[in-house]
């Protein structure tokens, strides 16, 4: 899940009486789980919110290549290098499907890219954290992809057809990503003292940023209520965070690693763990651009885009010449 703090437009969910005929027909389809397709009528707010959400998700896939790419050249075995390359390649592919899904809503990939590079659109806060040791690559797969899957599995049922179909493809690959991450963690946790230290260090640094991926509590948010009514958000942030913690704690125990939270405790009554909230001040600082790697991540993307301008222009010019030659020959 790579969409955080996505604002829907409008001031809250309209009652049926307040809706126009078109809005009512639209909501009936959503309620009946009939997919909305690109040519169907849709409220402007639905379109805009989806563009923000899908765009932010796509950007996250693209920026998400960078922290993992940081270790491709240092992967410790040929097999690990191949698995990591395949994973990063999948992520670029996810970005591509998602940009295509967003394009069906009337925005171009170049527009979205410009908005990312100018800082107008965001990507997930998690990718502003550094990958400092090899176990971080395990932690990214286990925790970050694990948190992403929590949100993406329900989104396979989202109301917008192209988004739902992209999610179905993405989820298949994400579960492979999570497994490979956990496999790295297992090797490290069962390895030498140095490797165990790397594994614990990775968990210490990635735990709270992973919890932040779900965003702050949105139980009271009008934006979330609207997105849920439109079925472009299926669960609240707190529900997903709880589910993630409940799933992850036993996995950490199995690895023999300690989750860095003194307040972590099984709560029999609610059938889940009690746990500490992440530092939301830090979260908002990261969103504002003050995370440990914001400058580097966006700087890398801007540089790639600017350095690549001559390539894009060159290939475009060639395609135009080729088309002109073909016309001339006919």
């Amino acid at each position: 899940m790579y969409a955080q703090m996505v604002k829907s437009t409008g001031s809250g969910v309209k009652s049926r009486d307040e809706m126009s005929d078109e809005e009512r027909a639209f909501q009936d389809k959503v309620d009946a789980d009939i997919k909305i397709e690109p040519r169907d009528w849709m409220p402007e707010g639905y379109r805009k919110t989806l563009i923000r959400q899908i765009g932010q998700h796509a950007h996250s896939e693209i920026v998400g290549q960078l922290p993992e790419g940081n270790w491709i050249t240092r992967a410790p075995t040929l097999e690990r290098k191949m698995i990591l390359l395949a994973k990063v390649q999948d992520e670029a592919g996810h970005g591509l499907y998602l940009y295509c899904a967003a394009e069906t809503l009337g925005v171009t990939r170049d527009d979205l890219t410009e908005q990312l590079l100018s800082g107008k659109m965001k990507y997930s806060s998690i990718f502003n954290y550094p990958t400092l040791n090899w176990a971080d690559i395990g932690a990214v797969g286990w925790l970050v992809d694990g948190a992403a899957i929590m949100n993406q599995v329900p989104l396979q049922r989202t109301s917008y057809g192209p988004y739902s179909r992209a999610m179905i493809r993405i989820c298949k690959e994400e579960s492979f990503h999570q497994r490979q991450g956990y496999d790295i963690m297992m090797k490290m946790a069962q390895g030498s003292e140095a490797q165990k230290k790397m594994a614990q260090d990775a968990l210490n640094r990635f735990w709270y940023p992973s919890l932040m991926m779900f965003g702050p509590s949105d139980a009271e948010s009008v934006h979330s209520a609207q997105s849920m009514a439109w079925k472009i958000k299926i669960n609240t942030n707190d529900e997903l965070r709880q589910k993630f913690v409940d799933q992850t704690v036993p996995q950490a125990e199995y690895l023999g690693l300690t989750i860095p939270d003194e307040n972590l405790k099984w709560n029999e009554e609610k059938g889940g763990y009690d746990f500490s909230e992440p530092d939301w001040t830090e979260f908002f600082e990261v969103l504002k651009g003050n995370g440990p790697c914001n400058k580097e991540r966006l700087g890398d993307r801007v540089k790639a885009w600017e350095d690549g301008a001559w390539v894009r222009d060159g290939l475009l010019a060639h395609a135009e010449k080729k088309a002109a030659r073909k016309v001339a020959a006919e």
Partner: peptide, 25 residues
Amino acid sequence: SEWCGHAPVLEEDIALANTALDLIG
């Protein structure tokens, strides 16, 4: 593989990763 995430266009990132993957295989 050093190119990862830095190509001029998304399709090239995918193609470069794919080439690196084949070569390591």
